[in-house]
């Protein structure tokens, strides 16, 4: 078995009284798009900062490409690209100069660097803005510049810390497509976010974090299998007698059914054709049906079931 790109064992990090990382463990393999999902304050950015040797930690070991990560691990750092949560570019330099500056910290050869910078500009779609200063760019373009500065040197491991915060949907899609493309070109990606839709969309494996702990890890399918809920059915009804509600609760694979505000919400734990079975029952009882929805569980449902709180509301 090949060495994991990232291995974190028993990582403990305290901010005075606050336990930010509580014996956190993680392994990320080559070629993965790994999502670190969790609400704000769950320890995602702290994990990344410890991983990059920016933050000191109280306990644990961190290895990247099989070697211990330290502040002077220059060879390891050469293979890592980071897109910070906050945009970190120089206001006085143009788009081209910013990318060239940060690429220059990794690549000494001027000709190679020129090529890399051009590739990065093409990759993020900033070709028409190379002579612009950052303050002239929109929020989305600024985020793209931030990404270009982080990946221009063609790293093997790319860490993106909430790169789509405060970005319009068009730019967000462009960024997500870019991340997938980087992965296809061979980079291993670590992607932190509290937007579960993004994580579901691009990540091949996901770790869900809460209070500095890794509470669940796996592919999105594996994570969803961890919970009881497999389908959520919502049906609008004018009225539903208590006896009918009790009868619906007795149908196969239904473990919860509630009727409030003219809405019948049914939770199923597996099985097939649950929606058809419920609709057949309602038809037999000649109950008028309005809108009908059937949803599969989301990562938010996974988080909700494991922690008892909503991921999106954090």
């Amino acid at each position: 078995m090949s060495t994991p790109v990232v291995r974190i064992e028993n990582l403990v990090k305290r901010y005075k009284e606050l336990l930010a990382l509580d014996h956190f463990n993680l392994e990320i393999n080559e070629g993965e798009v790994f999502g670190l999902l969790g609400p704000n304050g769950s320890g995602k950015t702290t994990t990344i900062n410890c991983l990059l040797s920016l933050l000191s930690y109280d306990k644990g070991t961190i290895e990247i490409f099989g070697r211990e990560m330290k502040p002077d691990s220059y060879e390891l750092k050469r293979q890592i690209g980071v897109v910070m949560q906050n945009v970190a570019v120089f206001e006085e330099l143009t788009v081209y100069e910013n990318i060239d500056y940060f690429c220059g910290l990794y690549v000494k050869d001027k000709n190679l660097r020129r090529q890399y910078v051009q590739d990065a500009i093409d990759f993020v779609g900033l070709k028409d803005f190379t002579k612009f200063h950052p303050k002239k760019l929109s929020g989305g373009l600024l985020r793209r510049l931030n990404i270009a500065c982080g990946i221009a040197h063609k790293p093997k491991l790319i860490i993106l810390d909430e790169p789509t915060v405060a970005v319009d949907p068009q730019s967000r899609n462009k960024i997500l497509e870019g991340i997938v493309k980087l992965n296809e070109e061979g980079a291993t990606i670590i992607y932190t976010s509290h937007y579960m839709e993004e994580v579901e969309q691009i990540c091949t494996r996901i770790a869900i974090m809460d209070k500095g702990r890794n509470i669940a890890i796996g592919t999105k399918e594996e994570l969803k299998k961890m919970i009881k809920k497999s389908e959520i059915i919502t049906i609008e009804l004018v009225d539903l007698p208590e006896t009918d509600l009790a009868a619906i609760r007795q149908l196969p694979h239904i473990y919860q059914a509630d009727f409030t505000d003219h809405k019948l919400v049914i939770l199923c734990n597996g099985g097939k054709h649950n929606l058809v079975r419920v609709l057949n029952y309602l038809q037999e009882r000649e109950l008028s049906v309005g809108h009908v929805y059937s949803e599969l569980p989301t990562l938010n449902d996974v988080f909700l079931e494991i922690t008892g709180k909503e991921l999106r509301d954090m």
Partner: peptide, 20 residues
Amino acid sequence: ANLSTLAARKNISPAKKQVT
């Protein structure tokens, strides 16, 4: 790195801090 994001970005690069 604890004072600016730009510094953090420089600190995670392989460029030696003294050289920068």
